[in-house]
């Protein structure tokens, strides 16, 4: 396994310049994610309009995997319905924890760059924190979520 399979250029890039790294002042949904053991912390903001995600952003701090994962997630989610977002999360979860069979890589698009994380079981929680936080935001959970 080469380190470059984990830290692909796109991940390094999204870590260095995270996309949608901002607050949405009038967000309709918001949730916090926190992994106390690693110190990864993020807030996800969502604007839902007619059942679809019209805007989504995040803020926080964490390792390259968690930052890039959140950044990529916000890019991919725009325009998706809640059901589509849930389906993406399912797919992502399978990509990160099972073998790639049964994962719709086309649907994942650039999210598939995170596939390398699967070989590092201790790091999977970094990549999934944003997704669990997204789910909490959509379900309007008040407590911070964690993947530890």
């Amino acid at each position: 396994m080469d380190l470059r399979d984990l830290y692909q250029d796109i991940i390094v890039d999204h870590n260095r310049s995270p996309r949608n790294f901002r607050r949405i002042d009038n967000a309709t949904r918001m949730a916090q994610g926190y992994n106390p053991l690693c110190g990864d912390k993020l807030v996800i903001y969502i604007t839902l309009k007619d059942g679809a995600i019209s805007d989504v952003s995040f803020q926080g701090e964490g390792c390259a995997i968690s930052t890039a994962s959140a950044s990529l997630m916000t890019e991919v989610l725009k325009g998706k319905t809640e059901a589509e977002a849930e389906a993406l999360f399912d797919n992502m979860h399978r990509l990160l924890t099972e073998d790639a069979h049964g994962v719709d890589v086309d649907e994942l698009g650039k999210l598939a760059a995170l596939e390398g994380v699967r070989a590092y079981p201790t790091r999977v929680k970094c990549a999934t924190l944003c997704w669990h936080t997204l789910q909490a935001a959509l379900e309007e959970v008040d407590e911070p979520v964690t993947t530890e």
């Binding site: 380190l3 830290y7 260095r16 053991l37 690693c38 110190g39 964490g62 390259a64 970094c126």
Partner: peptide
């Protein structure tokens, strides 16, 4: 600078080096 402790832990492990990252 520019490298989070957890990424560093993973990368140096690739070199066979065991260090601790965290609080």
């Amino acid at each position: 600078e520019g490298v989070h402790a957890h990424d560093l832990g993973t990368i140096v492990d690739h070199h066979g080096v065991a260090i601790r990252a965290g609080h």
